[in-house]
């Protein structure tokens, strides 16, 4: 089952997210992550969602999404060159004997510490799913208290010399 990152431009209206998510639940497709926000054009939002399926399922997901009246544009980034990022806020237990070690990990992965208490650090980490997995595997033994992840966002890489639409 191949991973598909699907990027949708949709009308920025109430109920549109419900149409998209309802389509997945109603037809037995799976959403691994989903991320929504406005674009420069207030009337259009971008939904980036990650799903898995064989070719036939992925094809059907894309066709069904395209069929929604509020979907303006759909692109499947699988098979094209794209940049992908996800952000995680990770709250780790930071007792005296671990504080230096945590900061080393933060440094290696170019993360930021965004909140500090005598017992905790909250770390902001950005990267691909693989990078976040690596950070988490190092922090886990130290003790992760809470975590919040955004899910992936992605954009296709521009071909050199071609000006694209701005959204």
């Amino acid at each position: 089952m191949k991973k598909h990152i699907i990027s949708l431009l949709v009308d920025n209206e109430p109920g549109v997210l419900a149409r998209v998510s309802g389509l997945f639940s109603g037809r037995g497709f799976n959403i691994e992550s989903l991320c929504v926000a406005e674009t420069l054009d207030f009337s259009v939002s971008r939904i980036t969602l990650v799903t898995r399926g064989d070719d036939a399922v992925a094809e059907q997901i894309k066709k069904q999404l395209n069929k929604l009246i509020n979907v303006v544009k759909l692109s499947d980034l699988t098979g094209v060159e794209y940049v992908e990022r996800e952000m995680a806020l990770i709250k780790v237990n930071a007792k005296t004997d671990h504080r230096a070690e945590i900061l080393r990990i933060v440094d290696i992965f170019r993360c930021n510490v965004v909140d500090v208490t005598p017992t905790h650090y909250t770390i902001e980490a950005t990267g691909t799913a693989e990078k976040l997995a690596a950070i988490l595997s190092l922090l886990k033994p130290i003790g992760i208290k809470e975590i919040a992840r955004t899910g992936a966002i992605a954009l296709a890489r521009e071909k050199k010399g071609k000006a694209g639409e701005v959204f």
């Binding site: 109920g15 309802g22 009246i69």
Partner: peptide, 14 residues
Amino acid sequence: IVGITRPCTKHNYL
């Protein structure tokens, strides 16, 4: 009703 009929209409509006 818009929520209820979302999966059984081609489209709906409030």
